[in-house]
């Protein structure tokens, strides 16, 4: 452990000894893992393994009981949520959470990394740079023709993409996605995998996913969680053949 800590500045994200307990129940228990820049890491594991809680802890939604989360050498566990976002961590929720009343354009605009203070939001002007950036992100997430549509009219899959787009426009270094393809059609899944490949050219991505086919398509490395701990870690083939993983998750 000590040796790993000293090297942690080479990693984009270093999670060490992370623990959180709710009334004595340890949802995440002494968890450690490390992300390299530009890697795609997928977390898999049975329900209740603590996968979503890990994302909650990294983005500050839940506070850790103990342990550390270092992102580019900065400790995240003491920061407020919005400060974590500003330091370069973006997070997509499991159920699509976009602003239904606003148009696609406005959804992306709200996430544009400018005018985030109260006064900044009052002074914020929509200039050419903003519009160009929004249009470019909209092309990436296949929504360039729907900019003026209210988000409530989008399909489930399109909402998921929009939320990913809202992350992209923040220009984060680490993007965390919670089950991005859940509830998507086969075509949408394919497009999403494509989208993720584009995204990883410039970002590090941490994904929670159940669909093993999809995991195999995108993952550089896979971390398997079970009862709040790391059960196994490595390439998809390694993990698939690990007897412990087969026992608790994949089944025989």
């Amino acid at each position: 452990m000590k040796a790993a800590k000293s090297k942690s500045k080479d990693f984009l994200l270093a999670v060490e000894g992370l623990t959180v307990s709710f009334d004595g129940f340890k949802a995440v228990d002494d968890l450690s893992f490390y992300l390299d820049p530009n890697e795609i890491r997928v977390i898999i594991g049975p329900n209740g393994a603590g996968k979503t809680t890990v994302l909650d802890l990294i983005c500050g939604k839940t506070r850790a009981t103990s342990g550390s989360i270092r992102f580019q050498g900065r400790e995240l566990t003491k920061m407020k949520e919005h400060q974590i976002v500003h330091s370069g961590v973006g997070r997509k929720f499991q159920t699509p959470s976009v602003f239904e009343d606003l148009t696609v354009f406005e959804n992306l605009e709200v996430s544009y990394p400018q005018g985030h203070s109260v006064m900044g939001a009052l002074a914020f002007k929509r200039d050419l740079a903003v519009v160009e950036e929004i249009e470019s992100v909209a092309r990436t997430i296949f929504l360039e023709d729907m900019l003026e549509q209210p988000a409530s009219l989008l399909s489930h899959g399109q909402k998921q993409w929009l939320e990913i787009g809202m992350l992209l426009i923040q220009k984060p270094k680490l993007i965390m996605l919670d089950e991005p393809v859940a509830g998507m059609s086969v075509v949408e899944r394919k497009k999403t995998a494509e989208l993720l490949k584009v995204i990883t050219r410039e970002h590090t991505v941490l994904v929670i996913e159940h669909d093993m086919q999809f995991v195999g398509d995108i993952a550089d490395r896979v971390t398997v969680m079970h009862q709040g701990k790391v059960l196994s870690e490595g390439s998809i083939e390694h993990v698939k053949s690990d007897p412990k993983v087969i026992e608790v998750y994949l089944g025989h």
Binding site: F22, D23, F25, A27, T53, T62
Partner: peptide, 10 residues
């Protein structure tokens, strides 16, 4: 959360 609230997982 008041005097006797449970610490729940949210």
């Amino acid at each position: 959360e008041g005097l006797m609230a449970l610490k729940i997982r949210r």
